[in-house]
Design a protein around this nucleic acid. Structure first.
Lengths: 233, 233
DNA sequence: CCTATGCAAATACACAGACATAAACTACTT
DNA sequence: AAGTAGTTTATGTCTGTGTATTTGCATAGG
């Protein structure tokens, strides 16, 4: 093969991807070794290694010592959806953001929440209800429960001007979470605060958050009628 | 500082992450240079580079030539949700998967779809309606439109035994896509095929797919009542 | 026929050195 | 004060080499 010169790892990555997409290297087939590719592209083995490692990270190929590098048969594409704070979402739409605290109560943890967060019986949690408006129209209703054990000084925060989402993000910036999306009917306070008829389908996002394996918060965010969450991959 | 030895890039990545989480290096602050860190950890600069690059890929830090490495102020966490085929989802629940083709028609592209896919007026598309069952209960209703221009031999496929999702995944394995989630009321064929009362909130996923910048397909997948899509990050 | 063991092949990771590149900074000019 | 050109600096990338680790395969033993 023609040994090309001056190729960066990105060029190699793209070329390999191209050969996979055009079925020069079909699904399930074995790629040449790093050494062979390095010879073909006229570069160091480490450069090929980086190119292939990136493709492996994306799930395009799988690599095994001694086994070599294979094109995956059924690629598992992952949609990455950026989790931003509501204010950001609204401001990105060039709309005016308004936040309002609906209620704030210290309660002892209800059983269903105990199970979700893995808390002790009788643990105290801060329960908040909040509204987020875009251009004075209801955008999102936020029900939140915060574990006072993991975030003790949350009790000093009144949440009158700043939403719990943003406050927690600045307090516990790097956390793990589990998310669930679903469609729910508008009932009770949902239909009241989001100003929709009873039974209206609403998009809902539930999230449990941990910091260093300690439960931080559970949140249920319900969006206005017709809301769409979008992403690419 | 104490120069530790025998640290891999993973150890360095974890140590740096730990210092960020414990606010030794607070949000917005400047990290030591790669050279300094290499000296501290007793390793080569390339090793530090890889560790920091991974953290940068995860969105924990930002890096700029000459500017150095900074802890991001507001981390934009990305939820990764794996896009799997329905059959996989159902079989992972230990349920029996059943597929049924509802309708299959060549039609000329309706205006709304023209806009979505960027097609010419009068372009021919294959329109399919399909049902996916789990243990003989309705699981997902799939409405799909396939661009016969990008995938010509789709016309030879009858889709009686294999769903368009799986067929396309094997034909066009590596593609780009745009996804939208929403909550919709059950109407018309939705409430009929998913066996729910009219107006029932249903979780819906819409997706446009391209291959090498050519539009491939638009799909609208509506799930059974109460379905939750879950993911971690 | 099955299992254990050893060899070899391919990737994984590391290192030291080098050059490239972008951007912050400085000094100079207008 | 504002622009401009040169310098410095931290990251980005590549090279060539070396070692470590995993694992496919063959071979030997039960």
């Amino acid at each position: 093969m023609s040994a090309q010169k001056n190729m960066g790892f990105q060029d190699i990555r793209d070329e390999v991807l191209n050969r996979i997409q055009t079925r020069i290297w079909p699904q399930g087939s074995l790629l040449p070794t790093e050494l062979e590719l390095a010879a073909e592209f006229g570069c160091a083995r480490a450069t090929v290694n980086r190119a292939l490692r990136e493709l492996a990270d994306e799930g395009i190929i799988t690599r095994r010592r001694k086994g070599g590098t294979r094109v995956v048969t059924t690629p598992v594409k992952q949609a990455k959806l950026p989790i931003t704070v509501v204010r950001q979402t609204i401001e990105d739409m060039n709309a005016e953001y308004r936040y309002a605290l609906v209620s704030r109560n210290m309660i002892s943890c209800p059983p269903w929440l105990q199970a979700k967060l893995g808390l002790q019986e009788g643990a105290q949690v801060l329960h908040l209800n909040c509204m987020h408006h875009a251009d004075n129209r209801p955008f999102q209703f936020e029900e939140r429960w915060i574990n006072t054990d993991t975030v003790p000084h949350v009790v000093d925060q009144d949440f009158l001007t700043i939403g719990p989402n943003e406050w927690l993000l600045s307090e516990i910036p790097f956390s793990d979470a589990e998310i669930a999306f679903s469609a729910v009917p508008a009932t009770g306070q949902l239909q009241e605060f989001l100003s929709v008829p009873p039974g209206t389908p609403l998009f809902q996002l539930e999230r449990i958050t941990w910091f260093q394996n300690k439960p931080v918060t559970f949140v249920r965010m319900t969006f206005h009628q017709g809301y769409q969450m979008r992403t690419k991959y």
